[in-house]
Structures are given as structure tokens and as C-alpha cells.
Nucleic acid binder design. Sequence first.
RNA 1: CGGGGCGUAGCGCAGUUUGGUAGCGCGCACGGUUCGGGACCGUGAGGUCGAAGGUUCAAAUCCUUUCGCCCCGACCA
Length: 592
Amino acid sequence: MRFTQAFIPTVKEVPKDAVDASHVLLLRAGYIRMVGSGIYELLPLARRALHKISAIIREAMDEAGAQEVLMPAILPASYFQETGRWDVYGPVLLRLKDRKGGDYHLGPTHEEIITDLVRREVKSYRQLPLNLYQVQMKYRDEPRPRAGLMRCREFLMKDAYSFDADEEGALRSYGVMREAYHRIFRRLGLDYRIVEADSGAIGGSQSAEFQILAQSGEDRIVVCGNCNYAANVEAAEAQAPAEAAPDASAFTERELVETPGTKTMDAVVAFFEGRGVTHADTIKALVYAAGDETPELVMALVRGDREVNEIALARHLGVDEVRLATDEEAGKALRAKVGYLGPVFDAEKYPEGAPLRLVADPEVATLASAVCGANQTGHHYAGVAYGRDFEAELAPIREVGDGDPCPVCGSVLATYRGIEGGHIFVLGTHYSGKMNATFLDAEGQAKPLVMGCYGIGVTRLLAAAIEQHHDDDGIAWPMPIAPYQAIVLPLGKDEAVAEAAAGIYAALRERGVEVLLDDRAERPGVKFKVADLIGIPLRVAIGGRGLKEGVAELKGRTEDASENIPLDQLADAVVARIEAEGGLLRPRRAEG
RNA sequence: CGGGGCGUAGCGCAGUUUGGUAGCGCGCACGGUUCGGGACCGUGAGGUCGAAGGUUCAAAUCCUUUCGCCCCGACCA
């Protein structure tokens, strides 16, 4: 492609509210433009990179025995009504009506639709297993779209669905997909971890996420430095503490202390400064509402330096999800302002005992002299001991963090931030059961299909790849997903240089290299800057001096130094590097 | 859903407190000088100031309503 004919609208300035690297660079380098919140136009460079990513995914899926289909994005409400998701999905579902007033929605995911297709067409165990996938736009009215392509309302997703005759088969299909995903993420050139995940309300038996490591990631994961255990902190179960923490607190008896203006943990610790109280000597008390209709209030207790794992709490309580109680709800039950709540309920004020259910992380039970809210505005208790001053249900409800022991080998865990690039589930008969999707087994018995589903956020991967591969100058694509593999820069106005560059360009195209020729009448500095910004892995620069010596410069995007290569060897050198870096060469085709 | 912020030229922004001729930078067009890391000089085109209503002699600016966008939070009780 000649740059003068290409639509690559780079800009120097982007809105100040673009903060994440991928968001800024996609805008600056002319890959995307925003149309609305979480809705983007994908310009030629983005489309090319997405095609590369999709091609890698498709190849691995086909290889794994899956078959590509394309389902509609506009769906009649009846499918989601059949499984109850028409209501459950709530405002995230983008709903519309047709001219007759019929209810429709845009597809946020396709379990129901594919299950319907399969229940209509698959009648016998002889037709199983079956794995169908598609690459398609998905629509979710996210409460808060974020960071360009990272979290969108319209996004490209590869979703696959497997159908087996039994659980054993489903696990086999799941395993095949897991291996295919490993191949995909490796080919994409991304640093990722497969982690145990929470399978959520779907209640599947197994689930794993493919997390791309990046500082800007929305998810937190823990990774063992010793064995291969890794998990999303949501799913990671904290281990019971080996021993009580050494106790430096100066309080040996429970004592009511007036602590005005200490609504936050930090303020409390600061108040007790000098008396041996750290965050780890305090008890954090959070009031949650559990259940939908008439929520039960529950006080969750973790050590002051820990966080509550809401998913673990919900699991312990046996509900789908919990939410923090409103100040109003908490106030009604506790007669004290938030900031001064705790697990100790005086017999005088609370003859019936605690007015709500208490759930504590086991770590809390090891504290012998803790500080906690006194359920009296402006007051805390110091010197509180579990067993003596209060009791609670003990359950691992804290978030796992840095330094915690690995649940598998006991070694130390480290935390990372990650971007969820893929997620695979064993669904079991969750959907097939509700939708009566059955087949006849060898004995002629009708049985529900056993399903799995497997997603990859294709547009999100584009952003994630940039998060991992960029520097101050711009994007630095891994070769396999770069929109172009090489860019040729003729420098200066010399006619002979332009001709030589055109010759290199033609030779590279002849060899099947995807190449850009920056034939604009721009100064060299501009061409260098833009080449770096848009992130093309290989750069060929040719100027008047080099031409006299019969050489051009070849430089990798992430390298500091360039190499002079004789013109007649240049195509070979470029081709060799592309192949070495995992790029594919394509037979030449007509191009503008 | 809570908090904060923002809608002014294609893009990035100032101007709004204190009402009085709509500005700057980039980009774009033309001319010239430059030419190995987003050059410089000159000339020029380009705006119903998000929308609606109101106050006023006069509104980008004040009031009301509304639409849109962004950031943070939605665990620090």
C-alpha cells in the first residue's frame, strides 16, 4: 500500500481523557475513532490487525475440529425468555422493537440461539460431539465502557459452543479448547497466564481465564512462583493462617476509646499511632446485603489490611451475589454510622446478641488484641479478642494477595494485573436442560446435551496487545498481528531514491510481504515518527547517501540500531526476519 | 447507581467568575525557505459556542430544562 493512498489519519493530540496506552495510541496512530460511548469505528490499520488475530484464532479453532458459523446479531426475545435471561440480563441487554411491536435484542452472547439450532438439528448421539463457533459483533450496554477498545458496548468476539453426549465428553471438548487457546495466545505473541476463574452464576463445573498480563488490566490474578497454580483473585481461596500474627498492640483488655472523626481505616490507624496498632491489627467490618427480594444483612469481617472477596462471601452464603448495604440499610440494623461498625455487641445494648449474621475470615480469629468499630458513632474498641469479645461464622472470605501461600504447594503467591482475553467454561446442562435440548443415546433414551462455551475478545486482544507492546514512540506490534510487516521510507526528494524505494517496495510485494511505502512528500523526521507510531515491525529506510553505496537500512521497531543491507539482498533479509518472527508471507494480490 | 469534570473551527484547548466585535495551537489550502527523528515564515478558508426555553437593549457568558461525553468510585464501614 502506498501511504499517499492509505487512510491512516494520525494525529498529534488526543482528548485528555484517553489515559491508557492502547486507547491513546489507537487514536493517535489512526486505528480507531469514537462514535459514541464504547462504540468505535475500526479504520484500515485496525481492521488489518483484527484480521490477523481472527485468522490465527480461526486456524486454531478449525484445527481443533470446530466449525465456523454465523448467527444473527438481532435476536427475537423468545430465546432469552426461554432461559429467563430476558429478565436476568437487565439493562445490559440492548433491546429493540420491530414494526409490529415485537421484542428483539442485540446478542450479548449466543448460548440460547446455538442451543436452539442444535436441538432442532441434532437428534442422535451419532452426531456428537459437535463444536460450532463464530466471530461476530457482540452488544452489551455496559454500565461503564472503558479505555477505548478495552471495554466496549459493541465488540468483536469469537464464541464457540461444544455439545457432547455426557460430562466426560464435555470435559474432553473443554480440554481440546484449552489447548487450542494456548496455541492461539502463544501465536499472538502475548504474555499471558491461564488462571482458575469463578464460573459465576452459570454454575459450570470448570472454568478458566486466559489473562494477558498488563499494568492497566482490570482483573487481579495471583500466580505461584513455584508450581503452575494461577487464579483470578475472585476465585482464589485464601489459606488459613499458619499462626497468629505477632501482636504488638499495647492493649491487653477490651477498652472503649473515643475516636472522633475516624471514619476510615487509615484514620483509625493514625489515631492509634504509637500504640502498636497497624492495619493488620484492625478488623474491617463491611455490611453486605445478600439475596434479591428481601436481602439479609450480613457483616463480613476481614483483617484491616485485607479485602473482602465478594464472590467467596456469596458462595459461603449460598447466594448468587452480594452487594454492599446502603448506609441507610446498615444504619437501621446497627444504630451507628458507617466507619464505627464492628463485631462486638454489648449485652446491655444488644441483649439478643448480634442483630445480624457475622461472617469472619479465619485470620480475624487469630487476632488477640484488635481495634474495631464499637457500633457507637465516634467510638472504637481496642484490645478486642476473638472468642472472648465476639464470635462469628468462620469462612475464607478475604481476597488473596501478595505473599499469601499457594494453595497447591505452599510457596509464595505474587499478584499481577491482567486483561481477560479469553474465558472457557464447562456449562453442563444449564442451557440444554432449560431449553429441553436433548438427543437419543444408544439405548434410545432422551438425554440433555452437555455443553461448554469458549470466548475470546478479539477487539480487546487488539488493545491488550498494545498494552503489552508499546513504548514512548508508539505501538510495537508482534510480527504475527502487525497490520503491515514492513514499511519502506524513501528519504529526501531525490528522484533516484524514490525510484529505488519503489523498486524495494515492488520486490517485497513480489515476495508476499505486507508492506507500506511512505511515498509522501514529508520530511524524514515525520516519516520516522509515524512509522514508529503505527508500530510496523520492520523499517527499511533509503536515502541519497545509502543509495550511492547501494545499501538501505533495515531496522526492527524495538531495536536501537539499524543494519545496512545491499539492495540486492534486502528482500531476502526482510523475508528471513518476517519468517523468524512468526509472520506469514502471502502470495501477491492486486492492491492499490 | 454515587461523586467530579467537560461539550466553543476537522482535532486539542482558552474565553464563562465580572453579559458588550468569538480567540490560540495543530491540521487544512496557497506561496516561499527548509529537508535523517512530528521544521519555519507569510497569506487564507473554516464556528447556528451540544440542544431547547427564559432573563436582558445585548447571552458562549446569567437562570431553567434537556441530550451527550469522560474520569473516579461503586471493598477502606
